[in-house]
Design a protein around this nucleic acid. Structure first.
Lengths: 200, 200, 200, 200
DNA sequence: CACTAAGCGAGACGGTACGTCCCGTCTTTCC
DNA sequence: GGAAAGACGGGACGTACCGTCTCGCTTAGTG
């Protein structure tokens, strides 16, 4: 339905361009988005702030969203998602809390922008799925299957549905702003979802 | 952070303008959004399709999003949300299915667009909350409180959290497209949420 | 060999656009060219000076040269070229002096620019020929033929060659700047050309 | 009024750079100008055609015009302008014919370009005067003074005006294209100018 | 003979102007 | 007297060149 390109300009590679400039642009873009908002800034604003020619940006990215996409991915450490905790399920709760913390901060504003922009830009949607959504879902599916095998989670629930049930509320609040993304909220969602998902 | 106006042009009222033209614009806007996507169309495209002057549109709405907002609200029948069913909780399942059906159709595309655009347009966000989100949430809260009072739902869960747990996954799939918004999916979410929310 | 378009944007006509704005643009363009030189100014400079949007200019002309072309033609009064004088040939001398005076003034700078630019822009060359060169040549040819018929000029010289011999030196000095375009210079060219062109 | 630099990059000298590359650039520039026109080509086009880096060009010349200037001067053999003929004045006619022949060929296109560009580039104008116009004028003045001394030309005409009267029409036709630069035309201008300039 | 220094191609860089598209307002003209 | 038609000021876009710079590679001149 929508289509706005966002093709991966730099994909091919070519000569490795200056990483100093690269970072300056990412920083300028993120700063400006957080200051004024995605819509309010232009490619020229970013170029000016980064003290860079406009072409230098266009050589690397095809639009604002692609820049923010890269900047966002660079910011969030993919690291280990599920750190060990007192128990198997507690580890899930901690992971949810850590995502809520992420959403409360600057990265929350970035992903909010990216999710919205992705609705208008098919290629960005794919990028977002490939570089943010799916990596995390895959790790979560693996962890949940491990939990099912270990008898911590019900065997009759699709791990993908589990993920939706647990994490969708966080995305919902991020975008709707119907309430705070507090740890208390995370616990409420987690506890009552677990009563349904958890075994015994 | 963001701000794009969308002030309620027609709000005040003034003389009631030709409803024939009004509807032609709404239809043109919706048709074009579904055909080409929100971003790809301009106010001029809508005016041309509606065979109307651009000023005639600006007299009524301040931007594309406001038109789609109105069109969307006009399309979805607020009606009774929770129709009677075999049981109290079955009624909730049916309501979720009916929302999933809505999301699968043309209105799904519209609300997807509106939700995304609202991230960049504070006023649209307010409109969307006031005219779509909150009315439904209020009815749901009322229905859920009634369910708590009647002993169908646990008393120790915040009705607002209940709503998030049940409905957020639908919004999540609508926007992420991680899977179909089928009745089976609705059932999966409903059943396992109920095992946690419902009273034994 | 060269080709830079300069197609007559406004040619077709369409709705008659505001003449006030039209003149403001012409004035801004001429003033800027005289102040800073043709190359040194941009379409945006003209738009800014004329307090006008860039599109408003592009709606009427396709480039700087076309604007100056119009402005130049509007400035020079086509009027009667050969005003009566003491004698037939004196009238020619006066006409040459009046053209030298033109070349010494602001219009000289404009036509110098136009002639140069026309070397790079086929369409401008045609416009310049049709709107400046040829009208004057036609009047001169007519006047010279009248002079031949009246026995004031030799019958065995092509009037076109006469024009070249008399006027080319003025253009030459205009562009080369090899010396002043003074009345004395005009007289020198005229007198000695006449000794060859004139009958007895 | 105008000013575009064209400062003599190579003037100082430094180490004499590869003459093979030098000529390749000149040839590429001239070929491209004749093929596509001066405006239509970029420094990059020239560099690509000459299989040379852009810096290699900028080390030698500061802009396109300077390259063409050098190429033009290298092409036209300054040699003796006035070769002996049947008579003193016939030698002038032959010289005019030879210049017309030059103007009809590729060099005509080059000088046409240079003359036009010089209107926008003060330094180029100076170069053109110093390296093309003045050398020829000086030789012509000398030859004409010799003619006056020898009684072949009128003593009461400024040699500089003589030059203008004889040669300006050639430049005029070169730039205006009002007619062919044929030998017949040269003769027409020469004959009738001589009737005014020549003695007896 | 190895070694340094330069000249070179390639092309990224900051920057300016271009010409287009769209926005939201204002004006004209017609029905 | 309201609506279509569209001109208007303004701003962002994405491209093309400009003239400078920085890379490695080659190559010629020197010790």
């Amino acid at each position: 339905m929508e289509s706005d390109q966002t093709e991966p300009r730099a994909a091919g590679g070519g000569r490795p361009r200056s990483p100093r400039i690269h970072k300056a642009i990412l920083k300028a873009a993120v700063d400006l988005v957080l200051e004024r908002g995605f819509r309010a800034i232009s490619m020229d604003d970013i170029a000016t702030r980064a003290e860079v020619g406009r072409m230098t940006i266009y050589r690397r990215w095809c639009n604002k969203a692609a820049i923010i996409m890269d900047a966002f991915v660079a910011r969030v450490d993919p690291g280990t998602l599920f750190v060990p905790a007192r128990s198997y399920t507690e580890s899930i709760r901690l992971q949810m809390r850590s995502m809520a913390r992420l959403f409360r901060g600057k990265d929350g504003a970035l992903i909010r922008t990216l999710l919205a922009e992705a609705q208008f830009d098919a290629r960005l949607a794919i990028e977002l799925r490939d570089r943010w959504t799916m990596p995390r879902r895959k790790m979560a599916v693996a962890y949940f299957e491990q939990g099912i095998a270990g008898g911590f989670l019900r065997a009759d629930v699709d791990p993908n549905a589990m993920i939706d049930i647990l994490y969708a509320p966080l995305y919902y609040r991020l975008q709707m702003g119907t309430g705070p993304l507090s740890d208390a909220y995370v616990d409420e969602v987690f506890d009552h979802a677990m009563k349904g998902l958890g075994r015994g």
